[in-house]
Write a protein that binds this DNA or RNA. Structure first.
Lengths: 209, 209, 209, 209
DNA sequence: GATGAATGAGACTTCATTCAT
DNA sequence: GATGAATGAAGTCTCATTCAT
């Protein structure tokens, strides 16, 4: 997080709380983390949290949004900015995801997968706003994948409906996150990357470590 | 659940508790459901639950196992018993999953997705036994998919490593469960089914409603 | 409280909590007493309170009812049972009230007045059920006073509408409770008793200490 | 409130806070209103409140005083200034009270009764200064009633000790406030007015709407 | 052996109050 | 000097679990 983005003290405090909470929810689920723990981890008083968020659910919503923005920026936007070719973009996406997870595994011995998926599966029915937010995030993820699909079609590598391919790529991505977290196995991410390359007609493209 | 499988009264009580809890965890997550609520829903005394289970986590483990067995039997074993050809088996799997979710959506307005995925994402790090159990379940799921892949290879429809294809099919399945739950959209399941058929080299096979 | 009236253990616990809470609310108001304090004073766990009452307001409602029943029984019913003549009944009512307050003042240095009035003034708008309950209690109080008025009219001591006189007697009673509590002065109760006797046409009747 | 009475900005701010808080305490009790809510309602910063008042209790004391002054001026002084005869004065007092409550009931659907009684019943034991303040206010109220009694005696309408009659009138007034608030019934005020007229020997005097 | 009753710990939230700019 | 920001304490309520009959 770039703290320069939050000029006032309050905005910085708020952003710090969100980032802390997001990290904890990611690791230990919404209900598995108490507001007390978040306050301690963020080194703020519990009442300060309630100054910025109506309730714990509101904080979870902000955390979801935060994780969505972060993922979209650091994985998808970055990959699109750095590359033009569809296979290169896909490779960049999966390489980044893989590296992030490798790092995590080294740092904490575990690998957390998608920071949004767990929250929305846990809270989707109880908190429709979180579900809606996750829906938006995943819509944007799918858009990126659809763009890749479209370019692959334009390059004559595959055919079919770009949005259907985009959805398939997103589903594979979801599955990769989930299965790699469950098995604590980063390689599963690369597997999904390879399947994705095949789906857009670049079976020969290689995923660099 | 076939109650005839549990001859003694105690076994029936236990099975009834597990089934009730499994349903509730599926819908509202582990931490979102209290032991009180489970006892009420199952119409048993709370202390009775603690007669059969060491603690709430133990109950969650049993629920995970229960859901795993159910899914493996009703979706995968049934599909394999009914069909021989790989595409037919895949079609059966996805058709069953789709129909189950359609039913759910009609009955409760929502669609719950995979009954194991949410639990293990929520509790995986805190309760290693659940993670292990989910690992076993998903290993068996992957085995079924790997078998389908192997048969498709034998039929000359695709090539590659069967286990890698099996993993891809499982990841797609995970992604289908997750994305359809988030969007409350059963069609996403069929989309994943079609992608799966394509992956094993049966792009022309049709998913009956 | 006669504990024999509550056969089961749970009923006794519940009654004990109500009696304890009623006493505390009377002295220090609803919001001035915490559930923790009530639990401590009643020597039960806080969770036990919530086993018997949906929330603190529900406990206040039970306390209101409890105080109403107690007052009606010990002051009004008892006075009516012991005497037939309207002046004697009025004298009995005010004598009991006076003695109770004298006792209180000796025991705690203060005098609490009406156990229902404070609660309903504090919570009437937020908790309509308490207001309704207090309404019922005071309706019954007014009925007793109206009965006295009717008998005084029958005895040729006064005329007018019995219910209007009944209401006047009740209002005087309310005022007596309030003013004696504020001034910590039990004599104000006797003053109201004398005014009441005058209002029903027995100006010469004397209030024994 | 006449803001012209408070020349400096600070005094106006202070007076505005007191008036706002008094209104809120009246409606929802001392403990039922938070300092935050008062600050919001008065459109001042919370810290500003603490610039003018040592603590919330101090604000309650000021609110009590404010309500006392207001009531004494607008009801009692005004009635005494407008009329000379004791029955006319009593009628004026009760008419004003009645009209004020009718207005309230139309405006908010409820009727708040005496603005001091609730506060002092709630806080009397915890905050002796408030009790003392209320004592002073009610002493002055009683003085007004005693004056009326004295004039009625002088007019040969009744006999007895003026201060005892004054106390009776005040107790009736308290009771009228309480019972009308509980029942949300302004007519109860008029009833007390009629009883009061009777007590000072003007049973035939009529209370204009 | 099954269940009503009880509990300690901790959940979320709000309170009155003060700090620091 | 006024206000946004912060806090410790305490509030109500619920949790998973166990006792005692």
């Amino acid at each position: 997080m770039n703290y320069a983005d939050f000029p006032t003290k309050g905005e910085r405090t708020r952003a710090h709380i969100v980032a802390t909470a997001a990290e904890m929810f990611w690791q230990r689920s919404f209900n598995g983390v108490s507001v007390d723990e978040i306050a301690n981890a963020a080194s703020v008083n519990k009442a300060t949290i309630y100054r910025y968020f109506a309730d714990k659910g509101d904080l979870a919503l902000a955390a979801t949004r935060h994780q969505g923005i972060l993922t979209l920026e650091q994985i998808f936007e970055a990959s699109f900015a750095a590359h033009k070719a569809p296979d290169q973009r896909l490779i960049a996406i999966y390489t980044k995801a893989y590296r992030g997870n490798i790092e995590m595994k080294q740092e904490r011995g575990d690998l957390l997968g998608c920071p949004v998926l767990g929250l929305v599966l846990e809270l989707g029915f109880e908190m429709p706003e979180i579900r809606r937010e996750a829906g938006h995030i995943f819509d944007r993820v799918q858009s990126y994948f659809t763009g890749i699909a479209r370019d692959a079609i334009a390059a004559g590598r595959t055919d079919g409906a770009p949005d259907k391919i985009g959805r398939a790529l997103m589903q594979l991505h979801h599955g990769a996150c989930a299965s790699s977290r469950i098995a604590a196995e980063p390689e599963y991410i690369l597997d999904a990357g390879r399947t994705s390359l095949q789906l857009i007609g670049y079976p020969e493209a290689a995923l660099a470590i």
